[in-house]
């Protein structure tokens, strides 16, 4: 027996475990079976790309992981907490505590400044105003937008908006960052800048899931999960391409 390792034989902490996940959408009389039994484990610190053709169920899967939607069947364990019997209030609290979201269309609140947008999740955590603002400014600084703190989203470029959104997602110190096509609305250069940021956050130890269509973006992750018709057809580790090498 080697010294020091006896207590943590594996050294890896499981962050997300899903088993046999099913989801159907009712469409009037018929029903559309979107997820047909998904299984995977994601460990802490992973950077996973979820790929697949349009309509393959990527967003649906991410929404269920993000507790924005509920699976019909299957188990979901997040950081050793079984996620079940969710009502809206409970889901809201879990989202606030465990999860950060980045959307393709940014979803910033248009009448709030960058700083106020970033501090909003902290408001819902009950953090005091002064701390909230300090912390939000700190995160804006990390995404390189400290000088843009007082600007409204309409005064920012797409890349800047997405960086504000990432700062907002990070501000609540989530366990997992969920990004649904974060570069979908951005040009190539800006996309790489955003991926560079995501890689850096990942290097600090954050678990991140990125839904994407683009193979080059997927190559910047450490693992690629491919979906087709509601099942995983491929799940492989890849050699990560650093976004900074393009910038």
């Amino acid at each position: 027996m080697k010294k020091g390792l006896s207590l943590r034989p594996n050294n890896k902490v499981s962050m997300i475990q899903i088993k046999n996940l099913h989801k159907s959408y009712k469409m009037g009389a018929s029903s559309l079976h979107v997820l047909k039994g998904i299984n995977f484990n994601i460990e802490e610190g992973e950077l996973v790309a979820i790929m697949g053709s349009s309509g393959s169920g990527k967003s649906t899967l991410l929404n269920i992981l993000g507790m924005l939607d509920i699976a019909d069947e299957g188990d979901y364990i997040l950081d050793n907490v079984p996620i079940k019997n969710l009502n809206e209030t409970k889901a809201a609290k879990y989202r606030n505590k465990f999860l950060g979201f980045v959307f393709q269309s940014f979803n910033l609140i248009n009448y709030k400044s960058a700083l106020e947008n970033v501090s909003l999740p902290l408001y819902y955590q009950g953090v005091k105003r002064k701390e909230r603002q300090e912390s939000a400014l700190d995160y804006l600084d990390r995404v390189g937008l400290k000088d843009w703190a007082t600007h409204l989203p309409s005064e920012l470029s797409g890349g800047q908006k997405q960086r504000v959104a990432i700062a907002r997602a990070m501000a609540s110190k989530p366990k997992v960052l969920l990004a649904d096509e974060p570069t979908g609305a951005l040009d190539t250069t800006t996309s790489y800048e955003v991926m560079d940021l995501i890689q850096k956050i990942n290097e600090e130890g954050k678990t991140i899931l990125v839904v994407t269509h683009e193979p080059d973006i997927a190559q910047m992750c450490k693992r690629i999960v491919k979906l087709k018709d509601g099942v995983i057809i491929e799940d492989k580790k890849v050699k990560q391409v650093l976004a900074s090498s393009y910038v």
Partner: peptide
């Protein structure tokens, strides 16, 4: 939409 964003960020229905 704003309310949706707030809820995604942790606003409870209440």
């Amino acid at each position: 939409k704003e309310l949706g964003i707030r809820k995604a960020l942790g606003a409870t229905p209440k």
